[in-house]
Simulated assay, not measured.
Amino acid sequence: MNHLRVRFVLVETSHPGNIGGAARAMKNMSLDQLVLVNPKQFPCAEATSRASGADDILMNASVVKTVDEALNGCSLVIGTTARPRNLYLPELDPRECAERVMDESLKGEVAVLFGREDSGLSNEELDRCNLLMRIPTSQDYSSLNLGAAVQVLAYELMMQRGTQLKRPVGEVVRQYPLATADEMEGLFGHIEKVIIETGFLDPENPRQVMRRLRRLFNRAEVDHNEINILRGILTSINSNMGRSRNV
């Protein structure tokens, strides 16, 4: 089976057994890119025991300190959430999510973020996402173990693999790859610098301006060429401001 360019990113996992459970779920479904962001305890015998034969997934797991490192080079970032979020981001179920992941992985790297066992992903981490995935559960008991959540999406990805997705008639085929997560961070930093210099953003009272701009551009799924255009416009604004001050 062909290598699938998707990273399962576990953020600050508290219990090493959950890391092992996630590795086992991935191995079952022929996935192999596990990234651990600042895990509380790893490597650990409990993780190896729970992996139950998926030792190679654990041995090859990338351990990083920040989400930024985990997302380096990714063109699509999907955050998981256990409850509805009013974040103005498209929210998919696991099957819809698997379809998007399969489609995008043909063009670039995809990351799926799984948050902490007790509190999930922070707002800042969700700011990095283009889409959200939520697994439907019983209203009477909605708590889902981290390993089980990984298993649900891994299964849906397995079902999608080997199936050629048919594009609806009239669907636009993307000419350029999506901008990577680090390119998007460069854009947001550039925007913030310019709107502070123009006086639009007060750094002492920023309110929610940058968060709303992040969500706007993340929803838009900006491609590599578009981000170059936007950065060029911002650079032009900077240059014109400099000339104006020198007149």
Results as ranks from 00 to 15, higher is better:
3 H>F: 09
13 T>C: 12
14 S>R: 13
16 P>R: 10
20 G>R: 12
23 A>W: 11
26 M>S: 02
27 K>S: 10
33 Q>M: 09
34 L>D: 13
35 V>P: 01
38 N>V: 11
44 C>N: 15
48 T>R: 15
50 R>Y: 05
54 A>C: 00
70 A>R: 00
74 C>S: 01
74 C>E: 00
75 S>P: 03
76 L>W: 05
86 N>L: 13
86 N>H: 14
92 L>C: 08
95 R>P: 00
102 M>P: 04
102 M>E: 09
113 L>R: 03
121 L>Q: 01
126 L>P: 09
129 C>K: 03
129 C>Y: 03
132 L>H: 05
134 R>Y: 06
135 I>T: 06
137 T>G: 06
139 Q>W: 12
145 N>T: 03
146 L>Q: 07
153 L>P: 02
158 M>N: 13
158 M>Q: 13
167 R>Q: 13
170 G>C: 08
176 Y>M: 09
179 A>R: 01
182 D>Y: 04
184 M>W: 01
188 F>C: 08
193 K>L: 06
196 I>P: 02
199 G>R: 10
200 F>C: 02
201 L>V: 06
204 E>Y: 08
206 P>C: 02
210 M>K: 12
212 R>D: 10
219 R>N: 11
222 V>Y: 08
224 H>L: 04
225 N>W: 14
234 L>Y: 06
234 L>T: 07
236 S>M: 14
242 G>K: 13
